[in-house]
């Protein structure tokens, strides 16, 4: 198991953003669904080792992120795309991806090839030497995805990765997700149900910091039969589970 979470809780003041979550997952693509404020981003930030849990245990890539040495090893094998990706306006796409390759301690001799592969993989080859300040929102998002995959990670965390991408780019990204999921554990936080249906083998639906549903997209779809609201079967399953959690 690449991610093992037991009774994980994260509090911000008196608010429990994540409340007693248990989760175990191996290679494949796991979609993290839920309405705004459900705790998806907080859970993802804990898995990214950005914030510590308030209680519970977390093991990543069979290591304990609480100890300095294992945490560093986890981070070398981790790819993370935060919801709000900051960027250095004066950097080119290649500068940006290379910067994070170096911070992930990719061996310097391998960095140029790894950067070129990541930039090409997200379709930014023709913008490789363009300054980030000249790129559109969708292109910046793809530069963010490139930095996340530059170290060929075993654990990939994407927070709203398709925000700002046009429909064609979203389809391409889902293909990339499926490809990445054949070797790595990919956790994708999104509120776009269609992304999950198209790319994820497993779905976790969060509500008020807790897991309201965990299973396959087909199982979520089945929960919506005859219930729920929504245009697509998966959306009906999503709304049916949420309605049940709220009642």
């Amino acid at each position: 198991m690449n991610v093992e979470i037991n009774d994980l809780t994260r509090r911000f003041g008196r608010t429990r953003a994540v409340d007693g979550v248990d989760l175990r997952t191996g290679p494949g693509v796991l979609g993290l669904l839920g309405p705004n404020g459900a705790g998806k981003t907080s859970l993802l930030r804990m898995i990214a080792t950005v914030i510590p849990p308030s209680s519970g245990t977390l093991r990543l890539l069979e290591r304990d992120p609480g100890a300095a040495g294992p945490r560093r090893e986890i981070r070398r094998r981790l790819g993370y795309l935060p919801q709000d990706l900051g960027y250095y306006p004066g950097f080119t796409v290649v500068d940006f991806v290379e910067y994070f390759a170096l911070l992930k301690e990719v061996p310097p001799a391998r960095v140029p090839a790894a950067v070129a592969a990541a930039v090409e993989r997200v379709g930014l080859g023709d913008k490789a030497k363009s300054k980030l300040r000249t790129l559109s929102g969708g292109m910046l998002r793809r530069a963010g995805i490139a930095q996340a995959i530059v170290n060929d990670p075993e654990l990939l965390l994407f927070d709203e990765p398709t925000a700002g991408l046009d429909p064609e780019q979203r389809v391409e990204f889902r293909t990339l997700l499926r490809d990445l999921g054949t070797r790595a554990t990919v956790v994708v936080s999104t509120h776009l149900v269609e992304d999950v249906g198209a790319a994820c083998g497993e779905v976790v639906l969060m509500h008020q910091g807790r897991i309201a549903f965990q299973g396959t997209p087909e199982q979520l779809t089945a929960r919506g039969e005859g219930h729920g609201t929504g245009d697509a079967p998966l959306e009906r399953g999503y709304s049916a589970v949420l309605a049940e959690a709220r009642s």
Binding site: R75, G86, E105
Partner: peptide, 14 residues
């Protein structure tokens, strides 16, 4: 100050 501060906090270089 650092545009990618959140991201930097998940890096091997602490």
């Amino acid at each position: 100050l650092d545009p990618a501060w959140e991201l930097s906090r998940s890096m091997a270089v602490s």
